[in-house]
């Protein structure tokens, strides 16, 4: 891809625990274009948040590369140059825990300004008030503590903090999943407005596919540390291919018959996501898949492009590869 602001290449992040190696992210590749929104969707335990934290540098990757505008940045945040910290920011899921309860909103918003050397105290004060105004909060909120604010207002403060350094790439880690829908609507619209005005690129982590339908330019589905399907949004919802995508789509509770009609024919969801310590052999989804055959437990599928920018990782869509891999020992067979 030509115009990528962020690229992940075979990104892996393992954690060593007493129970064994947790393969949280296990070979994830994607690219994020300038000013687009890439939705990274998955259930808990799929590795979507770990991917985000590795990109921002809370974790150092075990293997693979992260490229920001073509420059390799695969190292923890403490070892990154200041300009890079400025350019990539994150909004965490729960504003109740991402804002220090013992500091005032003013102090919270001032921190990134201080770190990145914004002028004098007076300049910073003006900038703090400007940031509050940007997210439509009154200036006297600078004196308040986070616990005096409602959930939506707190998340707006967290967004203002992320925008304080004028970043180019913002990682949104489930920014509205702890909030009510009426507040979610307000925050999402605000985020979309900022994206337009400031030319931001968003990596949007979420479990909510209906939200992604309305926000993302492209959607990627993660399952157990791998991406199983990635496609432009319209294509993704019109022509879901991976059995897991279909199961997800048909599980979403909706509010109108029109939406009901859009869901793939009822795929009865079964099973639960296995522990990333004991990753199933072959295709990771085969333990819950309704369309599996005998190859799936032995052969891990390659990712293939089935349409314009539509990537799927399922043996059904790679017949030539599958037949070649049918003999044990060839292909990507897991131990």
């Amino acid at each position: 891809m030509t115009n990528a602001i962020l690229e992940a290449v075979e990104l892996k992040k393992y954690f060593l625990t007493s129970r064994g190696t947790v393969r949280a992210v296990d070979g994830v590749s994607f690219s994020l274009e300038e000013t687009e929104t890439l939705g990274l969707v998955g259930e808990s335990g799929s590795g979507k948040s770990t991917t985000a934290y590795t990109v921002i540098g809370i974790y150092a990757p075990t293997a693979g590369k992260i490229l920001f505008r073509g420059t390799e940045i695969s190292r923890p945040v403490a070892k990154r140059p200041r300009s890079l910290k400025r350019a990539i920011q994150i909004v965490f899921q729960d504003p109740g825990t991402s804002l220090n309860p013992r500091r005032t909103i003013g102090q919270i918003l001032e921190l990134p300004l201080k770190v990145h050397g914004v002028g004098t105290k007076r300049d910073r004060k003006e900038r703090v008030i400007e940031l509050l105004r940007l997210v439509e909060l009154p200036p006297e909120y600078a004196y308040k503590s986070p616990h005096m604010l409602g959930g939506g207002e707190r998340q707006m403060v967290a967004i203002a903090r992320a925008l304080a350094t004028e970043p180019q790439l913002v990682i949104l880690d489930e920014p509205t999943s702890a909030l009510d829908v009426s507040i979610q609507a307000k925050i999402i619209n605000m985020l979309l407005k900022f994206q337009q005005e400031m030319g931001l690129s968003y990596l949007f982590i979420t479990h909510d596919l209906s939200l992604m339908r309305n926000v993302a330019s492209r959607v990627a589905i993660m399952y157990l540390g791998k991406i199983c399907e990635l496609a432009p949004t319209a294509e993704f919802f019109q022509r879901p291919l991976h059995p897991y995508t279909k199961m997800l789509l048909s599980s979403i509770p909706v509010v109108s018959p029109e939406e009901e009609a859009l869901k793939p024919e009822k795929v009865v969801s079964q099973g639960e996501i296995p522990s990333p310590v004991n990753v199933p052999s072959g295709c990771r989804f085969h333990t819950r898949c309704l369309e599996k055959d005998e190859r799936c437990s032995r052969v891990g599928p390659e990712t293939v492009e089935v349409g314009e920018g539509h990537l799927v990782s399922c043996l059904k869509f790679a017949p030539q590869l599958a037949s070649a891999a049918a003999a044990p020992g060839s292909g990507e067979v897991e131990k």
């Binding site: 829908v181 009426s182 307000k186 999402i188 909510d208 339908r213 309305n214 909706v254 939406e259």
Partner: peptide
Amino acid sequence: LMRAVPKLTGGGIAEGI
């Protein structure tokens, strides 16, 4: 509330309440 729910049919998110 009904308007604010993101729809699978797309069409953007309505302004909340």
